[in-house]
Amino acid sequence: MSSPKKIPITVDGKKYDVPKNINLVEALSSQGIRVPTLCWYKGMDDCLGTCRVCTVNVNGRPSAACTLNTTEEMKIEFDTSELNDLRKSIIELLFVEGNHYCPSCEKSGDCLLQAEAQALEMTHSRFPYEFNHYEIDYSGEMIILERNRCVHCKRCTELFTNDDGEKVFSFIGKGKDTQVVINKETEKSLSKHKAQEAMDLCPVGAILVKGEGFKTPYGERKFEKEPLWIKK
């Protein structure tokens, strides 16, 4: 099998040769440029395009990098003060819309939102906190849905199924009232392993496995071992 055709692109004025027609986040990553993302992760087939944290300028136009594939002569702006601030502001908006109390969250240290906020050097939010009320759903057999932390990335609703291939999570409501719900019938059959898989898939601490928490000591949690930062 021949290797994919390489095409030239420009990132922040510097030329790179990358495979043609691959996901732009992945293409940049292959060149050592880590684009912040919440909904996208390496290896996923189709992008979700929900979080917009991966926004870059492509040929002068702001676009979510995870929604684009590489094409010839793409001119990308990534590491500019304006774009870094834009990405940071998106993270800040997620913090003020939800209720995120990292000190007592069991996903702390393993939370992608927290890690990206640290990588973007967020120290506070420029936006006022909304203190919205969210119900925590304890009705599942294996899983608790902690909606205070949900960032509506769609990872669980689009990508997660039980062992029979059935979806467990879905969205209800519209706009500001959108929320994730559990399908109690399909959730019932989840093994502990699958429940843990759902928790790991969630970029924040919105999906919790019942009866367990804080299993990993300080220093051994995911982003303590491999902290994120924007590679300059």
């Binding site: 000190p103 007592s104 069991e106 925590i136 019942k210 009866g211 367990e212 928490g213 804080f214």
Partner: peptide, 14 residues
């Protein structure tokens, strides 16, 4: 109140 029980030792120490 309303928090998962395993969170208590981490939450209340704050």
């Amino acid at each position: 109140q309303g928090r998962p029980y395993w969170e208590a030792p981490v939450l209340v120490q704050r």
